[in-house]
């Protein structure tokens, strides 16, 4: 709760010394990003109104098990990153690094599954040009994948930083907390993408 209380360098950040939670300005990006994805969901569902059978049949051809696997991977990655933040707040560099590395290793599975999934779809001749559903499928998952790659980049960068630091600094904590917030949103958006793209069509 009172994070930063026992950190020597909480000095210089009055809100840390006071035990108050500093406002992470990345929240503003996350709000804008969530609005963007919300609009994309809306456009997808509105387009679906016009051709529900095509959308349902196309969704049925997606491998929902791969979607499920990726959901579990992202949830686990999110949890490990949250644990890394918890370790960081009590000042344990080693534990922060171990948990970050674990999160990176687990989350890298998402990329492998995605490559396999795109590969098998393209192998079956299914591309963004196939129909409206697949244009959305590639665009939405591709845009999400871009977020994923950005988040992975941030996690890897921070994991490398932990090798150089011997003591957790307030600035590092802020960076890690910001990256973690972004990473959780990658998870959050996938929860909805999984339900909307894969699960609406499994029974068709």
């Amino acid at each position: 709760m009172h994070r930063g209380k026992d950190l020597p360098d909480a000095l210089g950040r009055p809100e840390l010394a006071a035990g108050r939670k500093p406002f992470q300005s990345i929240w503003i990006f996350l709000v804008a990003d969530s609005v963007s994805f919300g609009l994309l969901f809306l456009v997808f569902m509105v387009e679906r109104l016009g051709q529900p059978v095509l959308f349902a049949e196309s969704a049925h051809r997606l491998n929902a098990l791969l979607g499920l696997g990726n959901t579990l991977i992202l949830i686990t990655g999110s949890w490990l990153v949250a644990l890394a933040v918890a370790a960081c707040r009590v000042g344990s560099v080693d534990r922060t690094r171990r948990r970050l590395v674990a999160a990176i290793v687990v989350s890298s599975g998402f990329a492998f599954v995605k490559i396999f999934e795109y590969g098998s779809k393209v192998g079956d001749g299914i591309t963004p040009l196939t129909n409206d559903f697949y244009t959305f499928y590639y665009a939405l998952t591709g845009f999400h994948l871009l977020h994923y790659l950005t988040g992975m980049g941030a996690l890897i960068y921070l994991a490398v930083l932990t090798v150089r630091v011997h003591e957790i600094e307030a600035r590092f904590t802020l960076w890690l907390e910001s990256a973690a917030l972004f990473w959780h949103v990658v998870d959050l958006l996938w929860i909805f993408l999984f339900a909307m793209l894969y699960l609406l069509g499994v029974q068709t």
Binding site: I75, S78, V81, H184, V185, L188, F194, A195
Partner: peptide
């Protein structure tokens, strides 16, 4: 399915993102 997705989203928001 959608209700459970909402529950999941809320868990991520409240437990992980505080």
């Amino acid at each position: 399915v959608m209700a459970l997705s909402g529950v999941k989203a809320r868990l991520v928001l409240y437990r992980f993102m505080e």
